[in-house]
Design a protein around this nucleic acid. Structure first.
Lengths: 353, 353
DNA sequence: CGTTAGCACTCACCCAGCCAGAGTGCTAAC
DNA sequence: GTTAGCACTCTGGCTGGGTGAGTGCTAACG
């Protein structure tokens, strides 16, 4: 009984393989797993009594637990954590799956504003879980292009293209009627002044507008709107959180006929929490798992997140990842998230060239 | 009880007011309402026994039902339908609420691509229910503007602005390096050829490109991409379905601890069903309610939809509306949906001028 | 000394039976 | 036509015993 099964993070190999077996079994069945089921389904070469002893040890080590006396074991969050640490380096996606995912990205290659959505959709499908993704967003965006299009005599549409890929359309009420010709001239002037600039620099450039007359004042007015739009874009810390596959999680037995998931969804709408969460993975360059109670908010204690950032730390970063019950196929999840985020890295690198 | 309570659609006024009372009470409490509760809470001026008689009549008329013998009454879908018919003309939003909603639209007035999202958010908030909205989309879009922006030597971004307000960004790999200057010239040529055109006309215009040399072939290549992008936009019958406030519906007692809602959400992802649903309201110019079993799909039988289209039938139309349990405050729902859709009409009319 | 068979023990789960309460439908009187 | 009174019905919650899965412990074994 006084067997030492755990010596500071390392585990007797047999105990470790039994832990893996318990996790694998529980992930698959969602019911507590007993010693008999283990010897039956995994060729462990020992009797159920021995397995029971080891299970008891794993429980005292805090890696497994008991819903009640006469039930089988289920992994604790610490158990999952131990498991995740032991596999995360090795969790690499099979080449076939890599190819399939690459292929899907190939299909929408030209629609860069859709990449992050596709990433979530792919992750959701591959893991049969919920997935989230945000577009890559810079701390301080650079204007790449400014265009003005006439809509009616007194209404124009201002289009701002950012170097980081985003697009903004702003309606502008004109104080006096203007032809497309005037708008084009104004756009060319503004484009020359502001292309390549951040909000701060663009505002400075605005002061250098000289001359009077209708065009100069048009340029001035529109320029102010450009600066405001860039400012607003910069200030929006999380532009959008796209999620997909929420239905998959709703189907998980732990959430069917329970309202826990509703609270999870509610927590996910809290931008402050998400911002903090995303900050904690940004720039680490690694896939990170947040398992059950490791999540701060009460409502998130029944789910796990596997997240990674993508993009270029100095330029623009986004986040992709999956969300599911703590009883999650972590190996698959980590593998797919790692691969998808690296793919997004490639894609983003191209358009920032 | 051979009282004739219903004569082809019309109802004895007292019976009608009791029906309203039952619906009002049931909408508020979500529990079957008994005769005693009615006389207590609504000054009906008659005894519970009389109310019981009328309830029985309303039941034989098919407007109310019984979960079981010893329970109170709940409205049937037909009961809700009768109620909706009786109020829908009168369901007008209070001026205060109208003002508040107008104010919220004022805040994002310049960001036209956000209007439909805001509409859903407002409807969700005002009704404490789920809301959906789609952007206004034309059957055959017209190009308003074409722009080309260099990203790197061999990569460019094609931006297409549609007259109907939408925006498309397409990455283009160039067969040979091009400066911004070349791209601008190509864009101007294409803009001249295609502005105001539909996909079919734009394609025809492409054949008129003459001359050889790098610019002509660039124009040709990009022009093909423009046509393809317009085609793709036209072919996408439903561009996006934005939803908000799903959490509100998850909180409804009929869906907490049940998986019915999951199936509803699943049905809502079926574009074919939505397309058909939207077609049935397009151009009617009226707010329409789809109550419980009136919805085709099995999974939608426990919810109601209150929908309206907006936009200009010939040009571009979208849909806004709310989704909730059949036990829904229809008056409020119809009022807000009607108002929001009319507001969207105004907004869209401006930019299509 | 680790492993194993055997066994008593413990709960969750299921089902049946029971009770209380809400609300009805009917009847007879007003 | 309306109302009081009453018998009746059915759900929801509560209780209690039976079942079975799975444990922990003990003692024997190699």
């Amino acid at each position: 009984m006084a067997r030492r099964v755990r010596t500071t993070g390392s585990l007797d190999p047999r105990a470790q393989s039994i832990l893996r077996a318990v996790i694998e079994e529980y992930v698959a069945t969602a019911t507590p797993v007993g010693s008999a089921a283990l010897v039956e389904r995994y060729r462990l070469g020992v009797s159920s009594a021995t397995v029971r002893n080891i299970l008891a040890d794993l429980e005292t080590a805090g890696l497994l637990t008991h819903p009640h006396t006469s039930a089988g074991r289920i992994p604790t969050d610490a158990g999952y954590r131990f498991f995740v640490e032991s596999i995360s380096e090795a969790a690499v996606l099979a080449p076939v799956e890599q190819l399939m995912i690459r292929h899907q990205f190939g299909q929408v290659q030209h629609a860069s504003e859709q990449w992050f959505r596709l990433a979530a959709t792919i992750l959701a499908g591959a893991n049969r879980m919920a997935a989230i993704a945000t577009p890559a967003k810079p701390r301080a965006a650079h204007v790449r292009r400014i265009d003005l299009v006439t809509i009616s005599a007194r209404l124009a549409s201002l289009i701002i293209v950012f170097r980081e890929g985003a697009l903004r359309q702003v309606l502008i009420n004109l104080s006096e009627p203007a032809e497309q010709e005037d708008l084009t001239r104004a756009a060319v002037i503004l484009d020359g002044l502001m292309a390549g600039r951040t909000a701060v620099d663009a505002e400075r450039a605005l002061t250098r507008i000289d001359g009077i007359g209708p065009i100069a004042s048009l340029v001035q007015r529109v320029g102010e709107r450009v600066v405001a739009a860039v400012r607003e874009y910069d200030a929006t810390l999380i532009e959008e959180v796209f999620s997909d596959g929420l239905l998959h999680v709703m189907e998980a037995p732990e959430f069917v006929r329970s309202d826990k998931l509703r609270r999870v969804f509610a927590a996910l709408e809290d931008r402050a929490y998400l911002g903090q969460l995303f900050d904690s993975i940004e720039g680490t360059g690694r896939v990170q798992a947040f398992i059950g109670t490791e999540n701060g908010p009460e409502e998130m204690r029944d789910v796990s997140l596997v997240l990674a950032s993508y993009g270029e730390p100095g330029t623009a970063v986004g986040v992709v990842g999956v969300l599911g019950p703590t009883r999650m196929a972590y190996q698959q999840a980590i593998g797919t998230v790692r691969f998808v985020s690296s793919l997004m890295n490639e894609l983003v690198a191209n358009i920032h060239a």
